[in-house]
Measured scan of single mutants.
Amino acid sequence: MAAGGDHGSPDSYRSPLASRYASPEMCFVFSDRYKFRTWRQLWLWLAEAEQTLGLPITDEQIQEMKSNLENIDFKMAAEEEKRLRHDVMAHVHTFGHCCPKAAGIIHLGATSCYVGDNTDLIILRNALDLLLPKLARVISRLADFAKERASLPTLGFTHFQPAQLTTVGKRCCLWIQDLCMDLQNLKRVRDDLRFRGVKGTTGTQASFLQLFEGDDHKVEQLDKMVTEKAGFKRAFIITGQTYTRKVDIEVLSVLASLGASVHKICTDIRLLANLKEMEEPFEKQQIGSSAMPYKRNPMRSERCCSLARHLMTLVMDPLQTASVQWFERTLDDSANRRICLAEAFLTADTILNTLQNISEGLVVYPKVIERRIRQELPFMATENIIMAMVKAGGSRQDCHEKIRVLSQQAASVVKQEGGDNDLIERIQVDAYFSPIHSQLDHLLDPSSFTGRASQQVQRFLEEEVYPLLKPYESVMKVKAELCL
């Protein structure tokens, strides 16, 4: 049975990233139509530049190519590739079939990587351009969430054990800070992308030097003109047959890092959902379990974690691919890159769409948070109580021993009897502590235990987050809708 299948058929496997999760716009960027249309555009740009620099290419040939950029006979191309065992030459023939007058000058002087690699770089750039505003929107939604809850005390956790208090907004800023680093890295790697350009079979530009009869300047002009037509500021000066596969490492490393950030955020949300302090959106008709109707599973956060793990592992592909590119190139890269580049971007696209949807509907339960604080705060307040007693004339050592005994009794009630923490009640009825009984409410005010959390939130948002989001103001209103 021949390899390949009808990918629109229910009898043929289709990647869930495309069929179930990723956005239509990201799927289109990695589609065959987008790819092969870009090949034709690159052939047109090459012909236009070659004509401008004096090669015998007519206006009629150029116009014929322009008129057929979208006229792609995919069936013919597939048949040609089956016959020739070469995808680029299959599309040269297919393009030439609908451009008979231009057929002889299509791909003039070029090698397969002229269309293959340059198209990949265009796709990487455009895919990054799709991700950047999506990530900015996630940051914006979380920034709104953090600002609104900047002063809401909550129990902090280290080692997932109760620690000092923080605020809900401050905790959210930990998430935002990681995503801001990801946004900066995505922008950097996007701006650092260079075009492969017009380089020939081993990167020496020998074929173009021959076409222009040894004119170095025209060869350099050709490279520059096509690079500018493709919208790049610069091209690699040095290439082998391909652009260095280190570029793929750079791009997928940034995406993998984004995956790590999203995994951490969504894990926190899942843990908070278990504590009943916070939940992701839950639709009115949504079913959490087929057997347990009360369940409210954090399905979206779980999906993000599941896909983020996949995204983090994909960076190993370009690392290994770059390491086995012998001399000017081997074909070890080809099949692998067809999979890992598309999957990385479709996965990143999915987790950003999902995280935006989550961040637009996060639900906080202040009463649950308050109750958990009441359970733990008495123990945390013991040092403040000791200091207040010393100020009232008591002995630190005597007070410490009193607190120690009462704390152990209260802990026994919590752990052995399943009761509430009654340390404060014990202190309130103990005559030894009568000098500070009137101060206990103040000493137990949760806001006095959150330090500068709310001020940190305000400063972080104003100095770091809002300036970073400013270039994306025009796209901030787009909502994230999930079908599944």
Rank of each mutant, 00 (worst) to 15 (best):
C98W: 08
A146H: 00
I57Y: 00
S334T: 13
T119C: 14
Y21I: 00
A480V: 13
N357T: 12
S448L: 14
L152W: 08
I123V: 14
R371S: 02
A431K: 12
T227C: 13
E277V: 01
T347S: 14
G214L: 09
M389Q: 09
M76W: 13
K233A: 12
S257L: 06
A47F: 01
V390G: 04
V414D: 05
F232M: 14
G104S: 13
Q164L: 11
L46A: 04
S438R: 11
I105A: 11
F36Q: 14
P293T: 02
F36A: 15
P446H: 15
K35S: 05
H400N: 05
S15F: 14
D6N: 14
C340I: 09
L444E: 06
D223Y: 00
N126V: 11
H7N: 14
G451M: 01
Q184C: 12
T94I: 09
A344S: 12
I424R: 14
V405A: 14
P467E: 10
V219W: 05
S23C: 14
F36K: 11
K391T: 15
E277C: 04
V457C: 12
F449Y: 14
T350W: 04
F433T: 07
F28N: 09
E302I: 03
Q221T: 10
K477Q: 12
F36D: 12
E360T: 01
L108C: 14
G54H: 12
L155W: 00
T158E: 01
F345C: 11
D430C: 13
L440N: 08
M225Q: 11
Q184S: 14
V247F: 03
T267S: 14
M292H: 04
Q177T: 13
G418T: 05
L186A: 10
P378V: 07
D332N: 01
Y21Q: 02
M76G: 12
R372D: 04
L443A: 02
L46D: 01
V364S: 04
L468K: 07
F36W: 15
Q161M: 00
V115C: 08
R296I: 07
A256R: 04
D73Q: 08
I369W: 02
N297Y: 01
K264F: 08
Q63D: 15
M89N: 00
G8W: 15
D178K: 04
R371V: 04
P10Q: 15
S395M: 08
R196I: 03
W326L: 12
M380W: 02
P133E: 09
L271G: 05
K264M: 06
F160T: 01
E383D: 03
G418H: 01
K402D: 06
F195C: 11
Q455L: 10
L142M: 13
E328L: 02
H97E: 12
E481I: 09
M26D: 07
